[in-house]
Design a protein around this nucleic acid. Structure first.
Lengths: 113, 113
DNA sequence: TGCCGCTACATCGATATGTGATATACGGTA
DNA sequence: TACCGTATATCACATATCGATGTAGCGGCA
């Protein structure tokens, strides 16, 4: 659980990460951020400034459906559910990531250091 | 086959890719781009608009040393050589990439399911 | 001779998106 | 009362990539 990743490397991964955690079920924003942190072993902690715009963008693109729901304690929550369109987008982004990480593995090697 | 990777995913990788190909020897800019394309299996083709600023930045940071050399045919070339500082930076960026890709592997799984 | 294409370096504006700060608001607790 | 954790939202700012454009040298070809 060393330091978390910051800066440029994370660019473009938020969509993939969000769609991935939502594949397993409906979640609200704050919870999505926690799941991503947990699943990445603490490496990724999406900031609100990147997470909420990404959620709105995905909803506008038809990849997510959202609904407000009251919480028994604390503020109301906006729950997000992945759509069929979102599942297609998830496949595309997964494939793109696979190509990208394979290219990096070839270029910089998995070995050395 | 599949297209090359473009856009946001590449952010932050240019430094690592450049330092990696220069670890094996002195190269000039145009050649660096070709090596990266070859080593990544065609997945990455750094544009001039990202490559040259990155080279200048690395030189200013003391990671690279550069010198003009004439070419027997074609325009003169600017050769870049990695320094001790650059090797240290390469280790850091390699480590950061390892942490990042491990986090992604944990978070999104090995590939598309 | 003139044009084209490849090599080679360089810079610019447009674009995307992450970070940290700030705001609002609810409920528990010290 | 003050603070903290939860929860959503937006903003200014920084950064780095892309595509376009500009420059030049050189060889091939009509």
């Amino acid at each position: 659980m060393e330091g978390r990743i910051r800066g440029q490397l994370l660019k473009g991964t938020t969509t993939l990460l969000v769609l991935t955690v939502l594949r397993d079920g409906e979640l609200y924003g704050y919870e999505i951020a926690q799941r991503i942190r947990e699943r990445s072993g603490g490496a990724f902690v999406p900031s609100e400034g990147s997470l909420y715009p990404a959620l709105h963008s995905l909803e506008a693109a038809g990849a997510l459906e959202a609904s407000w729901q009251a919480s028994d304690r604390g503020p109301r929550r906006r729950y997000y559910k992945i759509t069929k369109t979102g599942l297609g987008m998830l496949r595309e982004h997964s494939q793109e990531w696979a190509t990208f990480s394979l290219g990096m593995a070839r270029a910089v090697g998995g070995a050395d250091q």
